[in-house]
Design a protein around this nucleic acid. Structure first.
Lengths: 236, 236
DNA sequence: TAAAAATGTGTATGTTTGACACATAAATAG
DNA sequence: CTATTTATGTGTCAAACATACACATTTTTA
């Protein structure tokens, strides 16, 4: 609601949780701060909302600054607004999370911002309430990836079924049965065979697939759900 | 992220989507504005964030102002931040949604604010981007009610199984099979029989149940999901 | 070249969902 | 007050799905 007598104006920040996948584990793009406040500590990438900028545009800008990427999956997560969350000044932070292909981003931009990809399992303590943000983002990723096939945003354009399985095992931190997983994925009709084989990766077997874009859109639009039984794994 | 050179401070509003259930249909508590701007039009209840106030506390305050209720289910939904969403001044709005027992609230507070319960199906056009907010809230309610038994927040303390079924039919806008629904609900072990029968409502039959608080907590904590097959209905 | 590991396809079993039958209790119409 | 209609409570069955596991083939490694 708006239009009431104005209360005080408040600083609006954005923070981005950036997920990647290296074939084995889920990774986060984190910053070792070479600026104040909290110099030397780890944090998420963030920035402030400009007065003439849409919220989503601001998130896109911040993501672009760090990765050089522009067309990634980017979704608003939640807004954190405890009074003392930032000890320096009262600031609320609108948090976004993004899924990127870890191989695509700009290494120079990473170096400039002193950023690196960290295994989720090795995550250092982050400043302020950033740990809570990451926790919430992981929960949201787990929920969303169960109903929509957004996991593909973390993979290269072409990938094998076992690669995809490893991704889902990393997201949900479970071991899955190869045969059942394959059958289920194939039933979605989301994959199109390329005829090629994977010659690049360490494991040089397995047929390469890519996404069927139309089917993919159908799933994103919610005409059917992706792996609904995974919602069970999304809880807690 | 915080601690960068400050950009401009921005007005932070909150808007509340308040859901109720009258035994037949899902309802929204809406305001016919008797103040500017947009005098005479319908909107959500809202207000501004104070500088010394946690975000969630502000939402609680706004909900209390309108309903006189304090311990309702209240969850943050999303933050709306398009530059021109409020034509008067740049304002971002953090949106919360709440589930209340429609019989519990303070009729005086409603009158004071010119608020009334409106059937979701009869919702008038709302100001600004409030229609989008309602749409997002309904989607979130549908998702959440599938995995967690939060629907009970909309019912009185004691209720019958058919009442509960009507609620879920209203939330998901579907017709459900009485026998299958009953079986499934009973399997959750969430209901405790009171031995009483419903003598108050129009329909004077059916055993009255109340929530098993411990089981309820287990479900809220995500140790198991509530009606997972409903996630299918949450999509789109 | 042989052994080990990863891959692709297939089958059987238990559980869950969704469609439907029947009996009983309560409300309504005459 | 009684008959009819409506709402409620419990049960059964078949189809769909999830899970567990077997086997043959290909690729990698020793």
């Amino acid at each position: 609601m708006t239009g009431y007598q104005h209360s005080s104006r408040i600083l609006v920040a954005l923070d981005c949780i950036i997920f990647g996948f290296d074939g084995e584990a889920l990774k986060l793009l984190l910053i070792k701060r070479n600026f104040d406040p909290e110099f030397g500590k780890w944090s998420l990438m963030g920035g402030f909302l400009n007065a003439d900028e849409d919220l989503h545009d601001a998130a896109t800008r911040i993501l672009f600054t760090l990765t050089g990427l522009q067309n990634n999956y980017l979704e608003q997560l939640q807004t954190f607004g405890a009074v003392k969350r930032d000890p320096v000044e009262r600031t609320i932070s609108v948090v976004y999370y993004s899924l990127v292909n870890i191989d695509d981003q700009d290494p120079l931009a990473l170096k400039t911002h002193n950023a690196s990809w960290i295994d989720l399992s090795n995550k250092p303590r982050l400043i302020f309430d950033h740990d809570q943000m990451v926790e919430a983002a992981l929960r949201q990723l787990r929920y969303k990836a169960a109903l929509y096939p957004i996991g593909f945003e973390l993979l290269p354009e072409k990938f094998t079924v076992p690669q995809l399985q490893k991704l889902y095992e990393a997201i949900y931190n479970v071991k899955l049965d190869r045969r059942n997983f394959s059958r289920k994925i194939m039933a979605t009709e989301l994959l199109m065979g390329t005829g090629e084989k994977d010659l690049t990766s360490v494991t040089k077997k397995g047929q390469l697939f890519k996404l069927n874009k139309e089917k993919y859109q159908d799933y994103l639009n919610g005409y059917q759900s992706f792996l609904p039984e995974f919602t069970e794994l999304s809880l807690s």
